[in-house]
């Protein structure tokens, strides 16, 4: 049953648009999948105690990089997204390397990375001539609406499959990381860096590897988000609120379990949509209020997150010696 479940869910998700494809639910599904990919990308490092509040920055680099390369150099997002991913990795290493060398961990690491998302937000807002500033930015549309080469698709169903693919790839990467020796090393580093070093782990190298991977994945999510929405603004793809939203969603769903961030995305997006529908524009920003409150409640009472807690209930924790 446990082995079959992912395949059943996967098959159901592939079959879904052939059975039911009303535009609004489809749109919600696509957005949930893209953000799930971003949250999963965050959790790839977040689950090892590397709590980054800078991932909004990587998302922003991915989104703006992809759009700017397309509009100015005519580079297809198929190349633009990888280039943006490389830029995000470079940015991540510039921040993570000194953090690791000078032993900036835990809360202090979170604070340093917080500055990173603020910087990307400021740069995107201030470079008005290039990025349109706070008014936002739009990649140029190709003639006829859809074009695979331009990474633009007309139908929601095509987008659904693109988002599904990236989401599945994100889960696959995290699944692979969680089962590799790197996971042991990072767990060890999270507990005791000196002891991890004494076990032969190159602490800085392992931290940088996972940070680079996580940043690259998040930038890819930013690029895909940009292509889907065809409109980005500093607040929606970069900045502190996006970073916080990632932490919140991942923590609520559960950062230690594979489907956790996805469940977190479903909850946060339905919450934001629900508030928007019921309260209209009068409730703008209420979702952040609810996130903040719930985040505190979850960290205190359910640090494993919803999926994590349910999983522990079902399977029981591992036995002790």
């Amino acid at each position: 049953m446990n082995k079959a479940l992912p395949w059943i869910v996967g098959a159901a998700m592939i079959a879904l648009p052939f059975v039911y494809s009303a535009p609004y639910p489809m749109h919600l599904m696509i957005v949930v999948l893209i953000w799930s990919f971003a949250y999963t990308s965050w959790s790839v490092m977040g689950r090892f105690g590397l709590v980054s509040l800078g991932h909004g920055g990587f998302m922003g680099v991915g989104a703006y990089g992809t759009a700017l390369l397309w509009n100015h150099l005519g580079l297809t997002p198929w190349i633009g997204i990888p280039i943006s991913m490389v830029m995000a990795v470079a940015l991540a290493l510039v921040v993570a390397y000194p953090c690791s060398r000078f032993r900036i961990t835990g809360h202090y690491f979170a604070l340093v990375t917080l500055a990173l998302s603020a910087i990307v937000l400021q740069v995107a807002t201030a470079s008005r001539d290039l990025t349109g500033g706070s008014l936002g930015y739009t990649p140029e549309r190709v003639q006829g609406g859809g074009n695979i080469l331009a990474f633009q698709f007309e139908s929601k169903i095509s987008w659904y499959f693109v988002a599904l693919g990236f989401w599945a790839l994100g889960l696959l990467i995290r699944w692979w990381v969680d089962r590799s020796m790197i996971a042991y090393a990072l767990e060890a580093i999270a507990e005791d860096e000196d002891a991890a070093g004494a076990a032969g782990v190159n602490v800085t190298a392992e931290k940088l590897k996972i940070t680079a991977l996580s940043a690259a994945m998040t930038a890819a999510a930013g690029g895909v988000y940009c292509q889907y929405q065809m409109f980005i603004s500093p607040d929606t793809v970069s900045g502190i609120s996006v970073s916080l939203q990632m932490v919140f969603a991942a923590v609520v769903g559960g950062i230690y379990v594979l489907p956790g961030p996805t469940v977190g995305a479903i909850i946060t997006i339905l919450l934001a949509e629900g508030l928007r529908i019921f309260f209209g524009t009068g409730a703008l920003g209420y979702d952040n209020l609810v996130y903040g409150t719930l985040l505190v409640v979850f960290i205190i009472f359910l640090p494993q997150g919803l999926v994590g807690a349910a999983w522990n209930k079902l399977t029981g924790a591992r036995q002790t010696a």
């Binding site: 020796m181 042991y184 090393a185 076990a199 032969g200 782990v201």
Partner: peptide
């Protein structure tokens, strides 16, 4: 896992 970690990284 504690020991396997050391066995993996400690042996290069």
């Amino acid at each position: 896992e504690n020991v396997a970690l050391a066995g993996y990284y400690g042996q290069g």
